[in-house]
Design a protein around this nucleic acid. Structure first.
Lengths: 147, 147
DNA sequence: AAGATGGGGCAGCCATATTGACGTATCTAA
DNA sequence: TTAGATACGTCAATATGGCTGCCCCATCTT
């Protein structure tokens, strides 16, 4: 039990630290990366969808998106079906930058996967899925529709 | 790949949120919990050992420990082999409080473990171990000597 | 006796989150 | 067509948890 808690702590913190330098070069923080990441994952995401994913307040997200827009990494378009919505997308530069950050994560994770073996990876996923509260599960599964 | 990153994100954030309410009741935050947790895990831990585990600065930890001492959850004793060291320990109340918080974590993790099965749990551990940088591994293994 | 180490502390800064309230544009349904 | 709900933006104020740089003391080691 305790082992799971602390491995999760170390694994998560050490993985996220892997990209801090890349972010700092652009004057950005982890909050920006999380937004970038999920916008990359689901282009044309709306603000409210992103809010649900990140589970932070509108104000907190607002600043992050303002920063990203100012640095021309993210752009918004008015929703087509609902003109109140804003659809979020990465710019070409945003795509490039996110890919660069993701690459650092991918490298770390790939070596952990390789060391553990495919069977372990499946187990890793299963346990983590079980940690997601029922009310968030639909959202996470929706993300994975186009892996 | 992306699946691993986001499951880790959701799993970690949702698990940690499970104890926010319990902490808030005592006017504490997650930083306090991390310190409490590792002191519970290894009584008579020194400050410098805890710093290595948490990978934060002395000042950041200092504030956290001051808060915990003021609330009489943690106490320190002078080191026996080296009188410069301070050995950290939970008070009786600290033990009680940490156990209560841990219980919330345990409940979440136990249900994820049960849903995933023992084999998956082993895989979960293996992958997470692989995410820990080599220079931190010895420290993490040391924690587990007395599971 | 000199230097290294463990720990404490000050001042100031930054990033990221919070709440609550209010405003505007747009959609939906009576 | 109008009333209410929704999507988004934004204000101000506040809290938390990090950081750096610098200096201090006590204690251990050589």
């Amino acid at each position: 039990m305790r082992r799971g808690v602390e491995l999760l702590f170390f694994g998560y913190t050490r993985l996220t630290r892997a990209i801090d330098d890349g972010l700092a070069e652009h004057g950005l923080g982890r909050a920006h990366h999380r937004a970038l990441y999920f916008i990359a994952r689901q282009p044309d995401l709306t603000i409210s969808e992103l809010l649900k994913i990140l589970a932070i307040t509108k104000q907190s997200l607002g600043r992050v998106l303002t920063d990203l827009a100012e640095k021309a990494l993210v752009e918004t378009r008015t929703g087509v079906v609902d003109r109140r919505q804003k659809l979020l997308r990465l710019t070409a530069e945003g795509v490039r930058f996110e890919a660069q950050l993701f690459d650092a994560l991918r490298t770390s994770l790939a070596s952990a996967y390789a060391a553990a073996g495919q069977e372990s990876v499946t187990g890793f996923w299963r346990v983590l899925e079980g940690l997601i509260p029922a009310e968030d599960k639909a959202m996470v599964i929706a993300l994975q529709k186009d892996i």
